[in-house]
Simulated scan of single mutants.
Amino acid sequence: MQIRPLSLLGLLLPIISVQANVEKTIFLAPPASTIPSKEPSLDDLGVERLSPQNSVVRTRLNASFPTTAASQGSDSWFFLENLNPGQRYEVRVCWLSIQPTSFTLTTYPLSQTIEDTALLSSLSVYTAARLATIDSQLQEDAIPRRAGSPREMKSLDTAPSSDSVLFLRVHAAADYFSTNKTLMREVPPVAVDLILDPFLFNVFPRSLVPTAGWILVVTVLSVVLGRWIVGEVGRVIDDARRQRSLEEMKNK
């Protein structure tokens, strides 16, 4: 009887540890919108991009302790592009347990980001700080444009494009206390993986399909094995009953 609770605890512990290191937001991709090629150009912002073709970004995010002015810590911005309008997606941020951090992920349409003064100010501050840390020779490649022929690239430069896009804002707040004064004064950047994961039929995250497959296989094998065990136990019981009946008849 004691094995079952321990086995259940063993199954729950990995789940708990994974949840402690993952935060996500789920959203529907908006309709395609027109992206102007004139200033301010998205290629000049310096933010990293996520798309179904480039679904993982490994980076370091600045974090800070919550304050009155920044109750959710430090801001980081990313650009989600090439989305399929109406499809459900999730963006996950994964980080190490040795860096306790509280993350909040929020997506914003392009128009809202540009029109909202607070959002645009936050984006501007982030991009200015990020571009200042990028070598001037590499700033042109801060956000690579889509691959294509020189004619296509020129067309992209001179005409608006249409795409389903969103801005992703990530708040990172330090979530620890330490006797180390340096750690309390200067929060180190947090190593993270940002993952864009589309839903299949708007129901199930695509990245979980292999896991679901393994669960299905294990479930089928468990049912087959369980039925075999039940049959074998029943056979042993029946044999024992027949043997006992034979012995009773002999004794009579």
Rank of each mutant, 00 (worst) to 15 (best):
Q2A: 13
Q2L: 15
L9S: 07
L11P: 01
L12C: 10
L13Y: 03
I15F: 00
I16R: 00
V18C: 06
A20V: 11
V22S: 04
V22C: 08
K24F: 13
T25L: 11
T25C: 11
I26C: 01
F27L: 05
P31Q: 09
A32G: 00
T34C: 00
P36S: 09
K38T: 13
E39I: 11
S41H: 11
V47W: 01
E48A: 15
E48S: 15
L50C: 05
P52Q: 10
V56K: 04
V57A: 03
R58C: 05
R60M: 08
P66H: 07
T67G: 13
A69S: 14
S71H: 09
G73T: 15
G73N: 12
S74M: 12
S76V: 09
W77G: 03
F79D: 01
E81P: 01
N82K: 14
L83D: 02
N84E: 08
N84L: 08
P85L: 04
G86C: 05
Q87E: 05
R88F: 01
R88P: 00
V93Q: 06
V93S: 04
V93G: 06
C94K: 14
Q99E: 12
Q99S: 15
Q99N: 12
S102V: 06
L105G: 10
S111Q: 10
Q112N: 10
Q112H: 10
T113V: 13
I114A: 05
E115C: 04
E115Y: 02
E115T: 14
E115K: 14
E115I: 09
D116A: 09
A118I: 13
L119C: 04
S121D: 12
S122G: 14
L123M: 14
S124H: 04
Y126V: 15
Y126L: 13
T127V: 01
T127C: 05
A128N: 14
R130K: 15
L131H: 03
A132W: 02
A132I: 06
S136M: 07
S136A: 11
L138E: 02
L138S: 05
Q139D: 00
E140H: 02
A142C: 06
A142S: 13
I143Q: 09
G148S: 13
P150G: 03
P150Q: 03
D157A: 15
S161H: 01
S162K: 11
S162Y: 00
S162I: 10
S164P: 01
S164T: 05
V165G: 00
L166W: 02
L166I: 04
L168Y: 06
L168R: 08
R169P: 10
A173K: 13
Y176N: 01
F177W: 13
T182W: 08
P189F: 02
P189E: 03
L194E: 02
D197K: 04
D197N: 14
F199D: 00
F201A: 12
V203T: 12
V203L: 12
P205H: 03
P205G: 01
P205Q: 01
P210W: 01
T211C: 03
T211W: 07
W214N: 04
V217K: 02
V218Q: 05
T219I: 05
V220S: 03
V223G: 05
V223S: 05
V224I: 15
G226K: 14
W228L: 14
V230Y: 07
V230C: 06
G231C: 15
G231L: 15
G234L: 14
R235E: 07
V236Y: 04
A240Q: 05
Q243V: 10
L246P: 01
L246M: 10
E247I: 15
K250C: 03
N251I: 15
N251V: 14
K252D: 11
K252Y: 06
